[in-house]
Structure formats: structure tokens, C-alpha cells
Design a protein around this nucleic acid. Structure first.
Lengths: 145, 145
DNA sequence: TCATTGTTATATTTGATATGTAACAATGAT
DNA sequence: ATCATTGTTACATATCAAATATAACAATGA
């Protein structure tokens, strides 16, 4: 799994690390049980301080996506979403979708974009995994509503 | 159009103001041509400094959602999205959708949630406006893909 | 002419981000 | 039991963003 950072981004470094772990988890490049690099090693690879990586790992732990162990390090766990998650998520989704909507993008296009992104994800268990190519017209196994 | 602020949120105040204008624009509570309150007045209503509101308005202007005039004040305009918008939007959508996906929410549910939110929006022009109630099973006029 | 509106400048306070240094604590491996 | 590896915590510091505060400026419709 390839990781990279954009130091000049308006997104904080620890958030970028966290986001890429989430993305790697969704695309199947990272699976429950997989280990994450030690904090100091990943920090050295990125050229950032180990505190920055530590903060990203701590955030992932709070979200129930990884488990931390003194000696073993960090492993992916992917706990299910707490009840409050959906409401908070919906509010963020509302703003994001509204942005595209008010900029004149047709709702069908917006929804199609979401469906395509969701189809590029792969379920954690081995249940009919994607072939990797983001099919723009998925016939089976994809999200069609 | 009712506005409110949560001072203890991790979202900056100027961003909250901007987000609510975008949301009001999507839900039809705000339409192109509508005026926005003067900076100082809105700041007084919120109990914040006028610089905070000014920043929100300036952000909305940069996004092409409002136009500012010395004497007239702020009016909604809703310019179409620039070419670079869609790519930047997709990257943000990818992270948001990945978050829900890795938390175990079925992709069908995620897409249904997006469709429901999109159906609660109303097109700017008077073309079959929504009745206001977010119909969970829209028959016509809604997004069905 | 003038009151209203946005605009700009400067300063200050507060909190978040990121780095730096140092030490501590658990624990699997030897 | 020892020990190196790993996460964890505690300080400190520098930089930047957010928000407030004060003051003045500039366009412009009434």
C-alpha cells in the first residue's frame, strides 16, 4: 500500500495519513488483521515527526479502525459503526452533496459518481471481490439501488 | 431561512455560515437573486464579529455562489462549476463514502442515503418543486439512477 | 450630501498543527 | 531474567489558523 503526503495541502498531515488508511481499507489494499508500520518507521518514511503519525494512529484507534499494542504495534480491526455515526455522517454528506448540487451538477450525475466510487470499494470478507477496474456500467455485484 | 451556530463545534464559525448558505441554496430556502443580510447585521444576530461573517461571504464569493456589491450588499448568483471542481469534489466524496463503507454500512444503504438527501434538494428554477416532505420512496421526479 | 454597505489594515488572543527532546511502560523474543 | 522494540506520555517550542477588536477607507444608491 503506497502512502504519500502533500505538505502544502490545507488538510493536516495527520488527517491525510488517517484518510489514506481509510481509503486503503475501503479499496481492499488493507484488510482486518493486517499490521500497520511502527510509528517511528512510518514517520521516517514520510519525513515527518513521529508525533504526527502517532496522532493519526490515535485518531484511527478512536474510530475503532485499528487496535494498538505495546509490542505488536498497530493492526486493523474495523469495528462496526456506533449508533451516532450515521447521523453525523449524514450531516457531512448533506453539505458535500449540496455543494455539487448548487454548482449545477445534475443529481443523476452526482449519484452516479457516488455509485462508481462505492463500486471501486471491495468488501472485507472474500465475497465476490472486484476485479480492480472501476467498471462504469457494472452489471452484477455492484450498487444499483 | 433560519441560521444557527455551534461555537463548540470543530468546524470553524465562518465555515458553518458558509455551509448553511450552501444548504439553504440546495433546499430552495435560498434562490439566485435573493439578498443576504448585511455583514454587520448577521454578525450581530449571531453574536460574532463581523470579520467572521465577512470571511464566510468572501469564501462564498470565491466559490461563485454570491456576488458582493458596495451598497447593495450580497446577492445569490450560483455560477456553474469550473472544470477542476469535479475532480476535487470526487476526492472528498471518496473519503466520505469510504468512511461509511469501512464502518460496515452496506453500499446500498449508503447510496440510498445519498439519493434521499439529493431528493430533498430542489432545482433553482421552478420545475416541479418538491412538496417539502422528504419522501423515502419517490415515485417521480426523484433520483432513481 | 450622506448614511449604508463592503473592503482593507493592523493588532491581539486563543487554539491547532507540527516539531523537538526526553523519558516511561508494556511485552514478545531471546 | 534480559532486552530491544513498540506504543505512551510529558514538556517545550515554533508556526499558522481562527476569532476578536479597533480603526479607517471606498463605493454607491437614496
Amino acid at each position: 500500500m503506497l502512502l504519500y503526503l502533500r505538505p502544502d495541502s490545507d488538510i493536516p498531515l495527520y488527517q491525510q495519513i488517517r484518510d489514506q488508511v481509510v481509503n486503503g481499507l475501503a479499496t481492499g489494499q488493507l484488510a482486518p488483521g493486517d499490521p500497520l508500520p511502527p510509528i517511528r518507521q512510518l514517520a521516517a518514511d514520510f519525513g515527518v515527526h513521529f508525533h504526527t503519525v502517532n496522532r493519526a494512529y490515535d485518531l484511527l484507534r478512536q474510530e475503532g479502525l485499528i487496535r494498538l499494542h505495546r509490542r505488536t504495534g498497530a493492526v486493523v480491526v474495523c469495528e462496526p459503526a456506533p449508533p451516532a455515526f450515521r447521523d453525523a455522517w449524514r450531516e457531512r454528506a448533506r453539505v458535500l452533496l449540496a455543494e455539487a448540487f448548487v454548482k449545477g451538477i445534475p443529481p443523476e450525475d452526482i449519484l452516479a459518481e457516488c455509485a462508481e466510487l462505492l463500486n471501486s470499494f471491495v468488501p472485507p470478507a472474500g465475497s465476490a471481490p472486484s476485479t480492480g477496474h472501476s467498471d462504469s456500467s457494472p452489471s452484477t455485484g455492484g450498487v444499483s439501488k
